[in-house]
């Protein structure tokens, strides 16, 4: 069996195996962590790995089929991975009093504002763009 043959078999196997893709994404992350450590980049391994994968996909070095199943798993179960951080509330019992109430006001007020501003910005810039495109079409 030649090296080329093995590589083809590996790629074929990877496209059909979600666990294989999960491990593959983990390896890319470990590699990126090493890159960050070696170069002293002020970014995390996750961000460098994301950029690396985008680059490999854009230059067609890897097919999205070799990652899609694994990536879907990571994105679908994202919540599970940060639950341990959320339990940190145990260390802040004061959050269950007046302080927590104030924080809720910040979160609710802020979220309403973000949603309102985002809605208006996207809706209006979308309309502006559509009109702009229409007038350009008339020019042509």
């Amino acid at each position: 069996m030649t090296a080329h043959h093995l590589s083809v078999r590996f790629r074929y196997g990877l496209r059909h195996s979600a666990p294989g893709q999960i491990v593959f994404l983990g390896l890319i992350w470990l590699f990126s962590q090493e890159v960050v450590r070696a170069t002293g980049l002020p970014l995390t391994g996750g961000i460098v790995g994301l950029a690396l994968v985008l680059l490999l996909l854009a230059t067609r070095r890897i097919s999205v089929l070799s990652l899609r199943r694994g990536a879907s798993w990571f994105l679908a179960e994202l919540l599970l991975f940060f639950i341990p951080a959320v339990l940190a509330v145990l260390n802040y019992p004061q959050l269950f009093g007046l302080l927590g109430l104030k924080i809720m006001v910040v979160i609710l007020g802020g979220t309403v504002a973000v949603m309102g501003v985002t809605a208006m910005t996207v809706e209006l810039s979308g309309k502006w763009r559509a009109r702009h495109a229409a007038s350009h079409a008339l020019d042509a």
């Binding site: 790995g49 994301l50 950029a51 994968v53 990536a71 990571f74 599970l80 991975f81 940060f82």
Partner: peptide
Amino acid sequence: LLTLLGPATVAFAVP
């Protein structure tokens, strides 16, 4: 489990 946020961030490249 928090460690898995690293590879999950890499996975964001796909969408």
